[in-house]
């Protein structure tokens, strides 16, 4: 398990960026279902800085993982063949649309239709980005990673983490009542449930796959057992984050809702980060590769 901590920058990236991206799913849902006045929209737009920051900090973390960040502009050379190029491309497309959307929204002059349309596009791009991030680890020489459980996990983290961030943004923007309203609440809960199922189910599936693998250096079962406590802690945090979200959408005093939102976000970061570290710890190559 210790070796996985060396992958902290990548764990941070794959925690923060999908979370930030996933928040736009909730925002899109809010724009589509809730009646928000201009002031509320303005507050939401300013607070959108939070998911934007998550995405950017995530990318910065990934950047620091590189030994020669200066050459980073070359990463698109492998587009189509290198899963990493594909991931970065998906991330960059998402970021570009995100920045365009956010800058436009901050002007306060974004037509409602455009907002809704762009938010939906962003939500879809976020999920695509999450899937590509997960697919980046599907390498046929790393048997324990070469499974759809990888992208499913990241998709789940984007949804659960995105729900937490989205709820936090809306709560801070004073939209507790809107959150409580039927259709947004349903949407948030739906996102949450799908996310938890994908995230936890994906990691569990991956752990089970790794458990049966073995190579000349170590057995997957040993790696899974050494990561087990981290997995359990991560799952507990993730579920707790969901519970906070549930409390948040059930309503209450504004500060209580904000508190729940903050709790959900913090627990989501902790839970996803732990689960990501566990993922790195369960790398079972078909041959002689290991972390470090």
């Amino acid at each position: 398990m210790e070796a996985a901590f060396a992958e902290m920058p990548l764990a941070l990236f794959s925690t923060l960026a999908p979370m930030g991206a996933g928040a736009f799913v909730i925002l899109a849902a809010a724009f589509l279902t809730a009646k928000l006045d201009a002031e509320a929209l303005g507050r939401i737009d300013r607070l959108t800085a939070i998911p934007v920051a998550f995405v950017i900090v995530g990318f910065i973390a990934a950047f620091f993982h590189l030994a020669s960040p200066a050459n980073a502009f070359g990463v698109f050379a492998g587009l189509g063949s290198s899963p990493l190029s594909n991931e970065i491309a998906a991330g960059v497309v998402f970021c570009v649309v995100m920045v365009v959307y956010w800058a436009w929204a901050l002007t306060g002059k974004m037509p409602e239709g455009v907002r809704k349309g762009l938010a939906v596009v962003l939500a879809v791009l976020a999920l695509v980005f999450a899937l590509f991030t997960g697919m980046a680890y599907m390498i046929d020489t790393i048997a324990s990673w070469n499974t759809l459980a990888g992208p499913v996990q990241i998709l789940g983290y984007a949804l659960v983490g995105g729900a937490a961030l989205g709820v936090l943004v809306l709560a801070l923007a004073g939209c507790a009542d809107e959150l409580k309203a039927g259709s947004l609440k349903t949407a948030v809960l739906a996102v949450l449930v799908v996310g938890l199922v994908c995230g936890i189910g994906g990691l569990a599936a991956q752990a089970m796959a790794a458990n049966g693998l073995e190579n000349a250096l170590y057995s997957g079962a040993d790696m899974v057992s050494s990561a087990l406590m981290v997995i359990v802690a991560g799952v507990v945090c993730l579920v707790a984050s969901g519970v906070c979200d549930v409390f948040a959408v059930r309503g209450g005093g504004a500060s209580a809702v904000v508190g729940m939102g903050v709790g959900a976000a913090v627990l989501a970061v902790a839970g996803i980060l732990l689960m990501r570290l566990a993922f790195y710890a369960m790398q079972v190559s078909v041959g002689l590769s290991m972390l470090l």
Binding site: A67, S68, P69, N71, G74, V75, V286, G287
Partner: peptide
């Protein structure tokens, strides 16, 4: 070396433990 970003992907993927990122040199 002029193109390499040192992401470590080659190291992970190679089943023969051949490439490795030399962080001092800044590339694989």
């Amino acid at each position: 070396a002029d193109k390499c970003i040192g992401c470590g992907y080659c190291h992970m993927a190679c089943p023969y433990n051949a490439p490795k990122v030399d962080r001092e040199k800044g590339h694989s």
